[in-house]
């Protein structure tokens, strides 16, 4: 039902899904698809999986959601299983090891690029609390090595409290 041709992952799938389901198959309306995309991005977990669960659910209910999940996880499941089988043998190879070592620098550059873009967007809003959250989360995880789960839960609850407060007072701290 769904093939996961999302190299690079993330937001790519939403535009692919729109092309396929809205423009080609006409299964759902454009605005509905946009709503689904927003919900998929705001929920935890992989956006691709979330989006396909929602589309499957809209179309066929529970069966649709389950089918969609299997459709989305099957390609990576097969491909990565095959890779993991050959990975150990590959890694022994001197050339592969040198290339992987080089790739590590590419991965570092890509991650830093994402951080710069995301942080830039946050800093542009010129709000104090998000900056405090960046510093707080960084200190907790990078310096004090606190479990990521606790860091996310803490800031999630904190943000919920702040938005409750903001909703009452009409201010916008986040």
């Amino acid at each position: 039902m769904l093939s996961a041709f999302t190299f690079g992952g993330g937001f790519v799938i939403v535009s692919l899904m729109k092309k396929r389901f809205v423009d080609k198959e006409g299964w759902i309306g454009e605005e509905e698809m946009l709503n689904l995309a927003v919900i998929a991005q705001s929920s935890p977990g992989a956006i691709a999986v979330n989006a396909s669960v929602l589309v499957g659910w809209k179309l066929l209910g529970f069966t649709g959601a389950v089918t969609a999940v299997f459709g989305t996880i099957l390609p990576p499941l097969i491909i990565l299983s095959l890779i993991s089988l050959s990975y150990k043998a590959f890694r022994e190879n001197e050339i592969v090891r040198a290339v992987l070592k080089g790739m590590m620098t590419g991965v570092a550059a890509v991650i830093i690029d994402v951080v710069i873009s995301m942080a830039g967007k946050i800093l542009k809003e010129r709000k104090l609390i998000p900056v405090v959250i960046i510093i707080g989360a960084f200190t907790a995880y990078y310096i004090f090595h606190i479990n990521v789960a606790y860091v996310i839960l803490f800031f999630g609850v904190l943000s919920a409290l702040i938005s409750l407060h903001d909703n009452k007072t009409g201010k916008r701290h986040l």
């Binding site: 995301m118 707080g136 989360a137 943000s159």
Partner: peptide
Amino acid sequence: AGLRPAVVALI
């Protein structure tokens, strides 16, 4: 909105 900056720090 609050988790976005936390996630940036984690990444």
